[in-house]
Design a binder for these strands. Structure first.
Lengths: 406, 406
DNA sequence: GGTATTTGTTGTGTAGCACAACCTAATCAG
DNA sequence: CTGATTAGGTTGTGCTACACAACAAATACC
């Protein structure tokens, strides 16, 4: 959002150094956003600043290790070859994720490369928060210890499936974990060695992995509705490359759009929520499978023509279409990205879903709704959590350079 | 972002004068946003700039007539009294509105005062676009001619109930007027004497009148969902004081949220849209009234206990609750503002609506959904259209000062 | 090897803000 | 009525950070 007047420094104030701060960000962004290494001159061309100004800013960013000078590579150019620049590979962030089916930890550097990761499958539906977070903390600590020296971690993030309070790092409600009112920071921070900890909703953070190919570098899509099918159904609206937070950061809860107000009661208190039609448990039950059956088994049955399984998935697709159509009408974001289990089932969902959407979305007359699939990532929340930390760094490099220069 | 970076000039570029441009905006905003006239020193205190800097910036804004120096008024202060500043009263914009039931034109100055206005009731359902816009144009021209000399109009805006393309000033579809693919700018511009013309959706612009008390001055609410009940049901999501546009500017179409996928067919092509339950024609029909009956008659019957009328309004309230709950779950904006006919019916709608919302909104457990009523304005779209023009001026004063100084 | 071309650096000019000193206009104390 | 106090507004000086221009460095082309 190109809104002015709001930002890291607040609605007001426009002191002198803010010009430099802003330009540091522009330069860092330009490098991060480019798909191939830019030279100083390239940055100047992209940003509109002069070469001399860029040069000075780049030098400072290199000293702060936010940028690296790469080895000059031979290109088919005519003049003096530039020194290619890239986001600093010695600056990284830790991303963590708690999901009903697994724990994950991942370290990602400013270039978006996964430096190290761990993944443990575990059944965490109705788990004890303290025990689970202790496990996650231990996992994270081991991962951090295994890192090469010289790598600076700038922060950590945790992705959790539920309603979270970002400000005080609490999980207010995570029904699929059986958690309510859990202070994640308190239970985890001690194990992270003083690393700043951010918390976020799983779908919001997973959506980042679609919005950004690497920290600061916009992905193919800038505006889309991410639908995270895990055990429940979460979601996030991405607008202009940024996750739309809403008032408390709880936007995107499409799992609780009402598909039929006379439908079955949902544990959220409402009736006929999408989750009651397209949630994992609901679909498995409709397909005549036990609640702990795998998605793969369901999809196998669908593809082999099992009528109950096919009926279940078709009902889910229709419900999904009805709910998403309402969401698209409200948000005017005619692009859907399926993630989690829904991504695995995309091939069987897509035709029905697109038909339903095109029939129900008001703007479909001027452009069809596109249904896309999220890139395959076993723990997209962890990736997104790390990217969120790095994104904050890219958004305000000056704030990170002054306190600890060098 | 106080400075460069993102803003009117685009995501990149951060030249030198942008600092001054940004500060001009901050100063102008500070004055516009204050509920009582600020002095130069007051602006300095609010913005964090020094008095000397503010003084220079204010002087330029006064020369450009964007600010006025008021008569010094006696206050109970101790030191030298400051010269109170206010947004320039000689700068104004023209706001126009075409509604199924009326035409309106209104001139509003930078202080938010209505300088002049005209209003003509007319039945424009299924009207001819060219004829209607010619009428509106004539009305506007007469209004402009009646203005006092010395008032500078900086632009015009038109509010229309339908899907509009802002970029090329076309109405793509306005079913309640019977319009499709109408080039509003071409039909109107000739009558406006070269005034720049913006076009906007009625609900989006009406929502501005709630978000802003006067141009640049935030209202009581900064985040809310505006529901415009005219003949159809439009809507707009306001986030951080700004209307959320979506990809094409068509966000907020809550009239076409699906309340019951098995419900009656809507003219949009979908089934069970909110408009089929809570739209004016639907409610009148359910109450056993003719389609051209007035809202007042309906409400009178409801209040006098007519069972059919009461049943109709209750059904509408429930449908509205179901649809708005979905919208709130997607947007996380737990404040609803009722406008248009819905505002008139607020007292009978409110209890049922709030009950439905609190039962269906996920976040209701941490804070009830508030249902509010828009201020009474016979043509809120016209007001909002004028404010939109003035808002653009306030957002970029530098752009308006350089071309024509003095 | 010379020339053209592009990159990166260095020096100079300048816009615009901070800071401080000063002037002005009010209230308050006596 | 006079002087002290307080706050608003203006003026002058210095500094920051960017623009512009000139130059050095490194490559390709002839």
């Amino acid at each position: 959002m190109t809104v002015a007047g709001t930002g890291p420094s607040g609605p007001y104030a426009a002191r002198r150094p803010s010009l430099r701060d802003g330009n540091l960000r522009q330069v860092l962004r330009a490098v991060a956003d480019s798909d191939e290494p830019l030279s100083r001159a390239g940055v100047a061309a992209v940003t509109g600043l002069t070469r001399s100004t860029v040069s000075r800013l780049v030098d400072d960013l290199v000293v702060a290790r936010l940028l690296d000078e790469l080895e000059p590579r031979q290109g088919p150019g005519r003049g003096r070859p530039g020194t290619p620049l890239a986001p600093g590979s010695r600056v990284a962030a830790l991303g963590l994720q708690v999901n009903p089916g697994y724990l994950a930890a991942r370290v990602i550097d400013l270039r978006g490369r996964t430096v190290a990761q761990r993944y443990v499958a575990a059944d965490l539906e109705q788990s004890d928060p303290a025990t689970t977070l202790r496990r996650l903390g231990t996992m994270a600590r081991r991962l951090v210890r295994s890192l090469p020296t010289g790598l600076r971690l700038v922060g950590a993030g945790v992705a959790l499936p539920g309603i979270v309070s970002v400000a005080d790092a609490r999980v207010l409600s995570a029904p699929n974990l059986g958690w309510a009112d859990v202070g994640v920071a308190d239970l985890l921070r001690g194990r992270l060695g003083g690393l700043t900890l951010q918390i976020g909703n799983e779908a919001d953070l997973a959506a980042r992995t679609v919005a950004e190919e690497s920290p600061g570098r916009g992905g193919r899509l800038t505006d889309f509705l991410y639908v995270s099918g895990e055990v429940g159904i979460g979601g996030a609206a991405v607008v202009g490359g940024r996750v739309f937070p809403g008032r408390h950061g709880w936007a995107g809860e499409i799992g609780h759009i009402s598909v039929d107000p006379m439908g079955p009661r949902c544990r959220c208190g409402s009736t006929g929520c999408l989750e009651q039609y397209a949630g994992l448990h609901a679909v498995l039950a409709a397909a005549g499978l036990p609640p702990d059956a795998s998605v793969d088994l369901l999809l196998e049955r669908v593809r082999s023509g099992d009528p109950a399984a096919r009926g279940a998935i078709e009902a889910a697709a229709r419900a999904l279409g009805v709910a998403l159509a309402s969401a698209v009408n409200v948000l005017d974001i005619p692009t859907i990205v399926l993630g989690g289990h829904l991504a695995a089932a995309a091939d069987v969902l897509q035709p029905l879903l697109e038909r339903e959407l095109d029939g129900r979305v008001l703007s479909a007359a001027w452009g069809s709704v596109v249904v896309d699939v999220a890139p395959d990532d076993p723990a997209p929340g962890a990736t997104g959590a790390a990217c969120a930390v790095l994104g904050a760094l890219i958004d305000d490099p000056a704030g990170w350079m002054t306190p600890r220069a060098g």
